[in-house]
């Protein structure tokens, strides 16, 4: 049976179809990807959850600040606490930090420019649901598309992230001022990952690199594993 991956849609999300399409590349026998409206209160039956990019709730107040109060977020928190794979991409990463499911915050890019470009990132750990099938040191070329992607946290948190091997991806040439070149981090157990680059937009050789497929492959493997956990 295909593993079921839910892609959450907030009012203002705009990358949900890209994620569903990219996950569709794994074929219907492996993956069934579908949209989950933000008003949903249960995530029962899903083997992984993706919070996609966009401008949830218009990014009013701060990116992610209002999305945190969407009904689905309580279910996402429970799902994450239960070990379920959760990946937040770009705005989804911002939502996860605002919700307290990931540490730190994403502030405005150094230089105050909206960045829409392709960057190099290196994989720093394979203990996460997004990098389990990758290798440490793997170099990926991925698109970024953000104004608030400058990761920051206090010194103690950074020390902890390093000591606990929770820095998932680093930029090879820091585009936005992120602390320690951080492009993605994870929670203690590695089942919640947030990243600013868009792996779902790096899955088609005609328009980009296909380096995003390796990350999504890891997510599909983690979701499949989850699907076989006896309930």
């Amino acid at each position: 049976m295909a593993t079921k991956i839910g892609v959450v849609v907030f009012p203002g999300s705009n990358c949900e179809h890209d994620v569903v399409k990219a996950l569709g590349l794994f074929g219907p026998a492996r993956v069934e990807a579908g949209l989950v409206w933000h008003g949903e209160r249960s995530l029962a039956g899903y083997d992984a959850i993706v919070l996609p990019g966009g401008f949830a709730h218009g990014d009013y107040l701060r990116p992610g600040a209002l999305a945190r109060f969407s009904p689905v977020m309580e279910a996402v928190a429970k799902y994450a606490a239960d070990g379920g794979p959760v990946v937040g991409i770009c705005n989804g990463f911002q939502v996860l930090t605002e919700a307290g499911l990931l540490p730190g915050a994403l502030q405005k890019n150094r230089g105050l420019r909206f960045l829409c470009t392709t960057v190099g990132v290196s994989v720093c750990t394979t203990r996460t649901v997004l990098t389990g099938e990758s290798t440490v040191g793997a170099q990926l070329s991925l698109p970024i598309n953000h104004f608030e992607g400058n990761f920051t946290c206090d010194a103690a948190t950074l020390e902890r992230l390093r000591a606990e091997d929770r820095i998932v991806l680093r930029y090879t040439a820091n585009p936005n001022g992120s602390l320690d070149d951080i492009a993605g981090v994870c929670n203690e157990d590695g089942n919640v990952v947030g990243l600013m680059p868009h792996p779902e937009r790096a899955c088609d050789a005609m328009t980009s690199s296909t380096d995003g497929m390796g990350l999504l492959e890891s997510l599909v493997v983690a979701a499949t594993r989850r699907a076989h956990v006896p309930v």
């Binding site: 930090t97 920051t152 206090d154």
Partner: peptide, 8 residues
């Protein structure tokens, strides 16, 4: 709880 993000 809402208006400020205490992290930053």
């Amino acid at each position: 709880r809402l208006l400020a993000n205490p992290v930053i």
